[in-house]
């Protein structure tokens, strides 16, 4: 898969396959193309060449997007709405019942601040709310885009527990970081990007045959 922004190739012929239940790190310096790759995998950007498949379905298909969750730098929540209102909004976008919101909040221990506006939350609480949003539709694949940067140790530990439970259900995690991250000890493999090129595949990450 290749992605151009104008004439500039942000990603060049990147190709890989992730096994179920794996936690894979996406490594590389700033500007390596990690966020671009994750945005393409999430369906927010289109690849200029090549394609992404989630469980055999192209990412342009709504059923594939239903299988993917993204936890990004920003929460993707509206700051003027409460956490509960934001999750109810996302429940509608994913075709879920309103009752799923409560279980989504419980999953990340966010019930205590569910009725607070996102703008009033600390960074750690906001990221927990964002994780509740990303997991609300029980995705098969979770993409983390520098999700643990600027979080305190305690919040990172809590989020790690949630992610370990998520992986134990046979679900896949791809986590980008520009350094060895707080998830390094859990990782089954790694992908290393540099200036848009895939430099290295480690561990469980498989090549895809053309």
């Amino acid at each position: 898969m290749t992605r151009y922004f104008g004439d500039w190739p942000a990603l060049r012929q990147v190709s890989f396959r992730l096994p179920a239940g794996a936690l894979v790190l996406l490594l590389g310096p700033n500007g390596a193309g990690k966020s671009t790759l994750l945005h393409i995998l999430a369906g927010a950007l289109r690849a200029s060449e090549g394609e992404v498949k989630i469980e055999g379905l192209p990412i342009g298909d709504g059923r594939a997007r239903q299988r993917v969750g993204l936890l990004a730098h920003r929460s993707l929540l509206h700051p003027d709405l409460t956490v509960r209102e934001n999750l109810a909004h996302y429940a509608a976008l994913y075709g879920l019942q309103g009752s799923e919101v409560t279980s989504g909040l419980d999953r990340v221990h966010a019930a205590a601040f569910a009725d607070m506006a996102v703008a009033e939350l600390s960074q750690g609480m906001r990221q927990k709310a964002a994780l509740a949003r990303a997991l609300l539709h029980s995705p098969r694949v979770l993409l983390l885009d520098e999700a643990f940067s600027s979080l305190d140790h305690r919040t990172v530990e809590e989020l790690r527990e949630v992610l370990q439970a998520f992986r134990a259900e046979g679900r896949t995690i791809l986590a980008s970081t520009h350094t060895e991250s707080q998830l390094s000890d859990l990782a089954d493999g790694a992908l290393e990007l540099d200036r848009g090129r895939l430099q290295q595949r480690r561990g469980c990450v498989e090549a895809v045959l053309a």
Partner: peptide, 30 residues
Amino acid sequence: MSAPISTASRPGTAAERPPAPKFWRVWARI
């Protein structure tokens, strides 16, 4: 064209997947 990127996780069953979001429900929510 390069080879497809894929995540080969266990296929989700139909029962696990919620129905596609309805146009009018999304519209009303927005």
